[in-house]
Amino acid sequence: MKILVCIKQVPGTAQVEIDEKTGTLKRDGVAAKTNPFDLYAIETALRIRDAAPGGGTVTAVSMGPPQSEKALREAFAMGADDAVLLSDRAFGGADVLMTSYTLAQGIAVLGAFDLVVCGKQTTDGDTAQVGPELAEWLGLPHVANVKSVDKVEAGALEVTADLPYGEVRQRVPTPCLLAVEKDVCEPRLPSYRLRKATAGREIRRIGLSGLRDADPKHYGLSASPTQVKRIFPPPSGSGRTMLEGTAAEQAAALADILEEGKFLR
């Protein structure tokens, strides 16, 4: 089974400065770490690999600046077999859609695979959209909010997703994409032995020219349909209004509130 796991390097602390002009994170000089959710993705990928009939490989894929290599080296120290870094100035400043597009383009040149595992979300962007969007670009079935992987077979997986109204256990044919929750497993710690043994292992670098769509206008900040205007801590409050009546009455009341608050035009 060939498994890809998407990981991202994020700031090591919660105190990060935002670039006012671009609305993106200032990464310079900030200690970085692997996105905590992605550790669960790596662990899930490794466990599926080890449980798969006939074994398999885990390839860690990251899109980011050259220093993201550190996150990929850490994936090696956890047991990943291979790593790919999608890095190019043209990819910089990508929003959610462009990030998922770039990952999809990168994955498209890596050859056949059976499974893509993503963490549910990152701790810097927090959108939880990259996984599902990536699946759409790749034309794969996907399950988000995966809280457990229950069965690994040739050609299919059984997983349980944690949804707001309950849990859903489903069988997904491979190839597919899973975005995993934090509860899915306890990630192993990086191994000193493996880190030493993989210190010289090559990490494949793919830039814009290595992709099928090599048009720089299709990537990065300029191609991103969403632009961050301003990032600020949300005002916190505990006000709450309960709407009553039938669904239609509640919807009408909600529409009135949104209109009054100028949320709708």
Binding site: G12, K33, T34, P36, L39, A77, E186, R188, L189, P190, S191, Y192, R193, L194, R195
Partner: peptide
């Protein structure tokens, strides 16, 4: 880290696991 890890491995430790982030330290 390196000195301690090598000493432990030489003394028969099966591996040395590294915990260098808040989440990992919390788990332990």
């Amino acid at each position: 880290t390196e000195a301690a890890a090598e000493t432990c491995l030489a003394a028969g430790a099966s591996d040395v696991f590294l915990s260098d982030t808040q989440e990992r330290n919390e788990a332990i």
